[in-house]
Amino acid sequence: MKIRESELPGIGQKFEIITRNDEKLVIVIHDDGRRELYHFDNEHEDVISSITLNDQESRQLASIIGGMVYKPQALETIEMSLGDLVIEWFKVEPGSKAINQTIGSIDIRSNYNVTVIAHSKKGKKQLNNPGPDSIIETGDTLVISGERKDIRNLIRELLTDERSD
């Protein structure tokens, strides 16, 4: 995916996105907070359709596209970053150390500097607010947030099967 960013003086900022399928999308963020999305034809010349969103709608749309509301089945892990902070969806692998332990007993927050934001039991779509006695089982998905290196550390040591490396 190619993204080109340019300034539109007096109007706002423009992002031109060409996807891997060679489709063109242009997003214009107006200084007043409005967002406009333009979908172009195959020649990248004419606008086929466009949509205008206000600030709040754009944020909601962003979280839907970003998978924060619903995680597509095809993805095992998703990452999104807010500066240094990374949020990751991770499916607990069979044979990892954390299995059958509670979040409280491992004390992930103080040992790894990582917060478990949500815990989704295997096969269920909804995310639960995890308490210290949530038991981690194979196939559960944990939504964790922290700095990238801390998250990598936690995944390597607790959420994957070390012997399989």
């Binding site: 423009k14 406009e36 466009s50």
Partner: peptide, 26 residues
Amino acid sequence: SAIVAKVLVDLKRTGNNETELILGII
């Protein structure tokens, strides 16, 4: 400058290829 910027926004031309150049010339 005022009319050009307004027309571009009203006609939904801000996403077009030529928009940067138009605003640049302005």
